[in-house]
Nucleic acid binder design. Structure first.
Lengths: 112, 112
DNA sequence: CCTATTGACTTGCAATTTGCAAGTCTGTTT
DNA sequence: AAACAGACTTGCAAATTGCAAGTCAATAGG
């Protein structure tokens, strides 16, 4: 449900919460599995992770695919649409590095 | 309270909600006053606007200044730190325009 | 067979944020 | 006095988040 046709509010309708872009960061950095996301420094909780992943899948940002059938195990991979949010995350890194000097410097390949 | 020292999560600790970047957009587009924000197409509610503005001021993104003393009236202006989030919003416009074709095209000067 | 393990969630509860709608407060102006 | 404008505040309910523990299904191992 779109709040308006402004591109900014449209984007925020999908990713304007505390966690979605954190998960996207992890996926851009190669994480695909449940336990990997749980292991990030921000310590997302399982209920929030589950509901965010389901929403991201519904929004077309990620795909949930089985990586093993016995027992059935899943991984989550970015779609092209999800991957295209990389620019937003890069700009966030630039901003935080400028105004919060204690923040980590992102790997060079993340910023290219 | 920072979740981690990752620049992305640090940024999201400040702007990772449904409304802060919508307000920032309005301010980048010249809005400064209460009624102007209330008049945006997304129809923010007064309680959310009030609490978001207060938080943005506390975080150093905006300044609340009186524009008139009788009766006392306020306006909100971006700090340099707040203005520097423009890049994030530009990337959001690019993303939404690419994947949600019905979204508005931002003014050229917004994207420069 | 039973127990233990792993991965992927789910549940119960409480606090916070959001949304709806109405209201209050202050200081004017008419 | 009543009306108006601006800047919030309040009451309520729904949604999101956070904490902690739990459940479920399908193994694997003894």
């Amino acid at each position: 449900m779109q709040r308006s046709e402004c591109p900014i509010s449209t984007t925020l309708d999908l990713v304007g919460d505390r966690w979605t872009l954190v998960i996207l960061r992890d996926m851009l950095n190669g994480k695909t599995r449940y336990a990997q996301f749980l292991d990030s420094p921000e310590r997302i909780t399982t209920n929030v992770l589950a509901v965010r992943l389901k929403q991201m899948e519904a929004d077309g940002l990620i795909l949930k695919t089985p990586y093993q059938l016995k027992p059935r195990r899943y991984e989550y991979v970015l779609t092209e649409q999800g991957r295209a949010l990389h620019g937003v995350l890069k700009e966030m890194c630039r901003w935080a590095n400028a105004y919060y000097p204690k923040t980590w410097t992102p790997p060079e390949d993340f910023m290219t």
